[in-house]
Design a protein around this nucleic acid. Structure first.
Length: 661
RNA sequence: GCCGCGGUAGCUCAGUGGUAGAGCGCACCCUUGGUAAGGGUGAGGUCGGGAGUUCAAUCCUCCCCCGCGGCACCA
């Protein structure tokens, strides 16, 4: 007999080999009917997998968070079975769950087309209707390799061969004629899979994620516990699409991208206004935090990049330019073999070391914080480019802190505090923090890495921010902190970063005189808060769906007239608002007020100030704020006071409050 | 870079082996309207680029470019 503890704390005795399903049935018929799997001492079990010993057992139903995971995993299996039935000769590989769904990677010579989706989904529904019991089997490793090879599943055989340690048993799940290597657990039968699934997209994916391997065909799907949830998810996706910064860029006239400069942004007046606001804000914040701003060259000699170590490691992604005068005759450019090479800077750090090296530095000069809104170019792979999120020309809010090793923790702490405060000002609360540790290929001794990682973690802990470790993701010269933000459709992008570097100062010979008069090497902290202005603004656009807070809005107020009779007053009001520091436009067009309100609302202008004969006579403004249907009639003077205060950037608001407080 | 899909008016999109259409926008005219589209008229296109098949290509085939979704990459 075995003793089972149920979630309410009660204990019951069962026969040896009792299955979670038996336990569910003994509790109630309805529970058995709803049961999808079980949690046995914390581990997920199939309903029909016999218990081996006394355990705490919890029945998992569609309500539990694990349910989605199970459903998606099963959906992947059903997809694979359907595909293999419809397209004989297709090999299966792996099919995990992902956020909101699942995918399965197939090997097949013919490409799939999204037009196949309908047939595949129909076949999947057939498999669900057939209600095949899903049976867990434990196989011997050699036997498994043998079997998968025999039926032509070379990828599966390879997975078993490479990934499963020898001696360890292998579990295979069988549904009808079809079976797949899988860790499980699974639903008791295919009929338990809700038909709330949909195949979403088709993509290529390298076998084992390695670009040197062959490319498989990946089919993505989404799966939910009910039709209603599926529908809600699809609606969410539609909504998210409306927030896409590339779409909003066109609608709000912020910027455009063009093949003539792929990966580089053409900022329009409105988009650049946002840029300028973001830039001046961050400039005030870092200046206040003790940084000094510098500007370094765009184009530097290849020798320099060789010394910094970038030439060997990143040359493929650098724009290299020969230093010679090309002939002006004809179109062809012949570069002489002995032409010196230069490269457009892909990053600012080596140049900052050069600035640091000018003149002799004392320990008293440290920490020295050099900042630059450095415009860098990286020759990113074509397939990597993505709107503002991944560009070839980018401007970082970059800075390098040169300090002593014992200053690392304080500097890191101060940086994290500053970053947090900045993200809050922009309204980002959902920040994903990672500590990226030493990669396989790296510079510097293990001893240094050990200390560096410990220092970063200590400082990170002090901030109280939740974080996760990203093993092996560090830069080649040191570990880093990464601050990721999420875009409209849930993709996360690294924005802020702080990287410890013990290597570059040594490589480029940066040194200072320490307290005992000896030469010493500073540590370098590479750090950015926004990351690149491009990406940050991209995220910002999606975060607010184009409805910028007043301080960032390209146009803060539109003065719109009802009749020509109010034109003069509208001009006067506009001038007064401009004089109060606001970004104002006037709309004197021969259009109805309805149309003007509609158009400026669509443009998401924070405030529309309507003026007609009444306002002109009374020297008032009828203010209509974005997102509200009502209006508020105030005197011009009151409007000037209120609006100009409301449009202040958050840091200046704080300063203003302190002064007046 | 790799796999799949796409590229038609400023924008969103329809369409056909016989050289193109809608809505919005734009221009002009009428209208001076009180809080999300007033009315009329008109202009606007090498159908991404190149080559091929054909009597004839925006449509079919091939190559290239760019975009989109993934993968790989991301100092």
């Amino acid at each position: 007999m075995i003793e089972v503890t149920l979630p309410d704390g009660s204990k019951r005795e069962y026969e040896d080999g009792a299955r979670p399903l038996d336990i569910a049935e003994s509790v109630s018929k309805s529970l058995a009917k709803k049961a999808l799997a079980a949690r046995v001492d914390g581990e997920l079990f199939d309903l029909t997998r016999p218990l081996e010993r006394d355990a705490a057992v919890e029945i998992v139903t569609a309500k539990d968070p694990e349910a989605l995971e199970l459903i998606r995993h099963d959906a992947a299996h059903v997809l694979a079975q359907a595909v293999q039935e419809l397209f004989p000769g297709t090999q299966v590989t792996i099919g995990p769950t992902v956020e909101d769904g699942f995918y399965y990677d197939f090997a097949r010579d013919e490409p799939f087309s999204s037009e196949d989706f309908e047939a595949i989904e129909a076949k999947m529904r057939e498999i669900v209707d057939a209600d095949y019991p899903i049976i867990r089997e434990v196989w011997d490793k050699e036997e498994a390799i043998e079997t998968f090879k025999r039926i032509g599943e070379d990828y599966k055989a390879q997975i078993i061969d490479d990934i499963i340690p020898p001696g360890e048993p292998i579990t295979v799940y069988r549904q009808g004629e079809w079976f797949d290597l899988c860790r499980g657990p699974h639903l008791p039968s295919t009929g338990k899979l809700p038909k709330a699934f949909k195949l979403m997209k088709l993509a290529g994916a390298y076998w084992r994620g390695d670009a040197n391997n062959e490319m498989l065909q990946r089919i993505y799907g989404t799966a939910w516990t009910s039709e209603k949830e599926l529908k809600a998810h699809l609606t969410r996706l539609e909504e998210a699409e409306k927030r896409d910064h590339r779409k909003l860029a066109g609608e709000l006239d912020l910027f455009h991208l063009d093949a003539s400069a792929q990966g580089s942004v053409f900022w329009h007046p409105k988009g650049y206004q946002i840029w300028l606001q973001v830039e001046s804000y961050i400039r005030r914040r870092i200046s206040e935090a003790g940084y000094q701003e510098i500007k370094t060259p765009q184009l530097m000699a290849s020798d320099f990049w060789r010394r910094s170590g970038h030439w060997d490691k990143f040359r493929d992604n650098m724009f290299v330019v020969p230093d010679f005068e090309p002939s002006t005759e004809g179109d062809e450019v012949h570069i002489p073999a002995d032409a010196e090479l230069m490269a457009i800077k892909p990053m600012n750090c080596p140049a900052h070391v050069e600035v640091f090296k000018q003149g002799q530095k004392s320990y008293r000069d440290l920490p020295l914080r050099l900042a630059e809104f450095g415009c860098c170019h990286r020759n990113e792979a074509h397939g990597a480019l993505h709107g503002l999120m991944r560009v070839r020309q980018m401007t970082q809010d970059d800075a390098h802190i040169f300090c002593r090793e014992d200053q690392i923790v304080d500097e890191t702490r101060a940086f994290c505090g500053l970053l947090n405060s900045v993200y809050e000002d922009f309204g980002f609360t959902d920040v994903n923090v990672k500590l990226a540790t030493r990669p396989g290929i790296r510079a510097g001794s293990d001893d240094i890495w050990e200390r560096a990682e410990a220092d970063l973690e200590e400082a990170l802990k002090a901030t109280g921010l939740p974080y996760e470790i990203a093993p092996g993701e560090g830069a080649f010269y040191g570990p880093k902190l990464e601050f990721h933000l999420t875009d409209a459709i849930g993709r996360t992008w690294q924005c802020g970063t702080l990287q410890l570097d013990f290597v570059l100062p040594e490589r480029l010979g940066a040194e200072y005189i320490d307290e005992s008069g000896e030469k010493a090497q500073p540590v370098m902290l590479h750090r950015a808060i926004l990351g690149t202005l491009e990406r940050f603004i991209g995220i910002l656009i999606e975060e607010c769906a184009g409805a910028f807070p007043a301080w960032l809005a390209p146009v803060q107020v539109v003065v719109a007239t009802i009749t020509e009779a109010a034109d003069d007053y509208a001009r006067e009001a506009t001038a007064a608002l401009q004089a109060a520091g606001l970004r104002v436009e006037t709309d004197l067009r021969n259009e109805t007020i309805n149309r003007k309100v509609r158009e400026h609302s669509v443009q998401k202008v924070p405030v529309i100030a309507v003026v007609g004969e009444r306002e002109a006579a009374e020297r008032t403004l009828a203010l209509r704020r974005f997102g509200s249907k009502g209006q508020e009639v105030v005197s011009l003077d009151t409007a000037l006071d209120n609006l100009s205060w409301q449009a202040l950037p958050p840091d200046l608001k704080r300063a203003d409050r302190t002064e007046s407080g």
